[in-house]
C-alpha cells in the first residue's frame, strides 16, 4: 500500500505499553509500529489479557506510554491540549453512560461540546452535525426517545452517532460488539465500514469478532505473544499470524474460510 505521510492519521513508533508502579515497570507489549490512514477501518484483535485495552488506553491518553512515540496528524500525542485532542479523537467506550434519562438527541448533542461556548449553546452548524450523525447511523426516527428505552444495539448506534457528531479524524471504539447478538454484531461492524468509507474518517475498534473483522476491515492489528502485527487481513492470513493468536489445544484457524474451527 503506498501512501503519502499526510494521509497518516495515527502512527506509533517503537511504542512500549504497560503499567508503571512505584517499584517496577510492567511491560505489556513493546516495539509497536502501526500506521492508520485516512478512511481506514481498522480492527484490533488479540486474546484476552494480551494488552488490547492497554494499547487503546495508551492511544487515548488514559495512560502514558513506557517508551516510543505516538503521532496523531503528525503531531505528538503528548503535546495535544485536552480540547485539541477532543477535536481530533472521539471515543466509544464499554462503560455505561451515567444518565440514561437523556434523550437520544441530547446525548448526541453532547458530542458537540468541544465546539460550543461556555454554557454549551448549539449553533445551526452544531444542530446540522447532530442531524447528519443521526442520519448516517439510521437512528433519526428514535431521536426523541430516552436512553433507558433503547435496546443495547440501538444504544451502541447512538454512542457511535455521538462520536460522529464530535467530528474528529479518528474514532476509537473499545469492543463495540459486546452484549450484542450475532446479527447486531455484524450490523455494527458493517455500519463502521460504511461510515469509514462515507465520512473518510479513520475508525479503530477492538473486538473478539475475528472472522467478521477479517471480512470487513481494511487493516487489522493483531496482538500475539511478543509481537504486534498490522497489515491487510489477507496478508495476515498468508503470514499465518492468526494461527498463533490462541493456544492450539482447542481451536484452529482455517486459512481458506478465514475463520476459526473447534478441533474435533
Amino acid at each position: 500500500m503506498t501512501s503519502k505521510p499526510e494521509h497518516i492519521i495515527l502512527s506509533t513508533n517503537n511504542l512500549d505499553i504497560g503499567y508503571t508502579t512505584r517499584k517496577s515497570k510492567n511491560m505489556v507489549a513493546s516495539n509497536i509500529n502501526i500506521e492508520l490512514h485516512r478512511g481506514e477501518l481498522v480492527g484490533l484483535v488479540g486474546a484476552n489479557g494480551i494488552g488490547k485495552s492497554t494499547l487503546l488506553r495508551t492511544l487515548t491518553t488514559l495512560q502514558n506510554p513506557l517508551g516510543g512515540t505516538i503521532l496523531l496528524n503528525n503531531k505528538k500525542l503528548a503535546n495535544y491540549t485536552s480540547l485539541e485532542l477532543a477535536k481530533s479523537m472521539s471515543l466509544v467506550l464499554t462503560e455505561q453512560i451515567i444518565s440514561k434519562n437523556l434523550s437520544v438527541f441530547e446525548l448526541i448533542a453532547l458530542g458537540r461540546q468541544p465546539y460550543t461556548n461556555w454554557i454549551g449553546n448549539m449553533e445551526n452548524e452544531d444542530v446540522s452535525m447532530v442531524n447528519q450523525a443521526l442520519k448516517l447511523t439510521n437512528i433519526y426516527d428514535i431521536k426523541h426517545k430516552r436512553c433507558f428505552e433503547l435496546s443495547d444495539g440501538q444504544l451502541q448506534k447512538v454512542m457511535i452517532a455521538r462520536a460522529l457528531a464530535q467530528d474528529t479524524d479518528l474514532i476509537i471504539l473499545d469492543e463495540p460488539t459486546t452484549h450484542l447478538d450475532m446479527y447486531h454484531k455484524a450490523y455494527i461492524l458493517k455500519l463502521l465500514q460504511k461510515l469509514a468509507k462515507e465520512t473518510n474518517k479513520t475508525i479503530l475498534f477492538s473486538s473478539h469478532e475475528i472472522d467478521l473483522a477479517i471480512q470487513l476491515c481494511d487493516k487489522m492489528i493483531v496482538m500475539v505473544k511478543d509481537r504486534v502485527e498490522a497489515d491487510e487481513p489477507c496478508n495476515l492470513i498468508t503470514k499465518g499470524v492468526f494461527q498463533s493468536l490462541f493456544p492450539k489445544d482447542l481451536i484452529d484457524f482455517d486459512a481458506n474460510t478465514g475463520s476459526f474451527r473447534v478441533k474435533k
Partner: peptide, 13 residues
C-alpha cells in the same frame, strides 16, 4: 458533560 461519565467527559475536552 459529566452526565456521560468521567472518561467520556475527558474525551470531550
Amino acid at each position: 458533560t459529566l452526565l456521560l461519565g468521567e472518561n467520556y467527559a475527558r474525551s470531550l475536552g
